[in-house]
Design a binder for these strands. Structure first.
Lengths: 175, 175
DNA sequence: ATAAACTTTCAATATATATTGAAAGTTCAA
DNA sequence: TTGAACTTTCAATATATATTGAAAGTTTAT
C-alpha cells in the first residue's frame, strides 16, 4: 500500500522532470525528444534499451534511434553491451558537472569557434575607417569578437577545472 | 569607383554577418528573423524604421513588427521617436557586454529561476531513501539543483560586474 | 471631424523540423 | 548458411513554428 504510493509519487515526479527538461531543451535549440531521452536516462538507475525508451516516452523506434545517436555524438549517452545480452543498453552521465562541461566543450567546438573564425574574417574585409558605416561595422564586429575570445578562454578553463572548484570555491573568488 | 568597391565589400560583409547571426540564433532557440533584425541593428550606425528592416531583410511588415516587439521585451532594442518625424525608429545596443548581460538576465528570469523552483519541488516529493530508484532520482535532481543554484549566483555576479572586469581581469583570477 | 501616415493584429498559409514505421541492414547463435 | 533478434535508414507524414498580408487600430496634422 505504502509501496505503491511511493512508486506513484516517483513516477509522477519523473514524468514532470522529463517533461520540463524537454520543454527547457526546446528553448536552447534541442529537440524535445532528445532532451527527454536524456532526462529519462539521467534519472534511471539502470541502463535502458531502445524499447524501454520507446515505451516510457511513447515515441517511435526510429525517433529513439536517431536521437540516441545524436546524444552519443554529444558525449552525453553511452552505448552499453551487457554480457550475455543481445540488446544494446544506454546510460547517461549523471554527474551534472560532467554533463555541463561536455555540452560546453561541444557547443564551443560546433558554434563558438566557427563564429570567431567568421568574425575575424569580417573584420579584415574593409578598412576605410573614414566611412561611418565601415567604422561602425568594424567596431561592432571587433567588440563581439573580443568578447567571444574572452568567453572562449573562460570556458576552456571551466572545462579544465573540476566540479568542487565550481560548486565550492568559486563564490569566494567572485566576491 | 573605389567608393563603390568599399560599399560592395561592406554590404557583403554585413550580409554574411546577418546571415550567420541568424543561423547561430536558431541553435539557441531564437528565430532566424529576430536574430537577423538584431544583427542588422547592431551594425547599423543610424536607427532604422520598420520599412528599412522589411526591405533589407526581405520580410513582411507583420514579421518585423512582432519580432521587434519581442526584441524590445528582451531589452535588446529600443524604440526611438525622432523629433519632427512621424515614423518610429529602432536601435540596438551595440556594446556586446551589455547585450550579453541583458540576455543572461532575461534567460535567468524566464528559464533558470522557474527550473530551480521545479527541481526544489521534485526533491521534496518523496523521501524513502531505501528505494534505489528514489535514491537515484533524488540524487540526480539534487545535483542538478545545486549546480543550477551555483550557476545562478555566478550569473548574478556577472550581471553586476562590468565589462572591463570580464574583458581584462578575469583571466588572472582563473589561472 | 477627416484623412493620411503609420502600427498592430491575427487568420491563413508557408516553411522548417520532428516523427513515424516499414523495409533494409546487421549480427550472431546454431 | 540460415533466420531470429536486433539496429539503422529514410521517404512519407505529422506537427510545430514562422511568415504573410490585408484589415483593423492608432496617432497626428490640418
Amino acid at each position: 500500500m505504502f509501496g505503491i504510493t511511493i512508486i506513484m509519487k516517483l513516477t509522477e515526479a519523473k514524468k514532470q522532470f522529463i517533461s520540463s527538461w524537454g520543454a527547457f531543451g526546446t528553448h536552447w535549440g534541442i529537440n524535445r525528444t532528445m532532451a527527454q531521452i536524456h532526462a529519462l536516462l539521467m534519472v534511471s538507475p539502470d541502463p535502458l534499451t531502445q524499447d524501454d525508451l520507446m515505451e516510457q516516452l511513447d515515441v517511435s523506434r526510429g525517433n529513439v534511434n536517431m536521437n540516441i545517436r545524436d546524444l552519443i555524438s554529444w558525449g552525453l549517452v553511452d552505448r552499453l553491451i551487457l554480457t550475455g545480452e543481445r540488446k544494446e543498453y544506454f546510460t547517461a552521465e549523471k554527474d551534472i558537472w560532467k554533463v555541463a562541461t561536455q555540452i560546453i566543450k561541444e557547443r564551443k567546438k560546433r558554434e563558438l569557434d566557427p563564429m570567431l573564425k567568421l568574425l575575424a574574417q569580417l573584420e579584415k574585409i574593409d578598412d576605410d575607417k573614414k566611412d561611418k558605416h565601415v567604422k561602425q561595422f568594424v567596431d561592432t564586429i571587433g567588440g563581439i569578437r573580443k568578447f567571444g575570445k574572452q568567453a572562449d578562454q573562460m570556458l576552456d578553463m571551466m572545462i579544465k577545472a573540476d566540479e568542487s572548484w565550481f560548486l565550492g570555491g568559486l563564490l569566494k573568488i567572485f566576491k
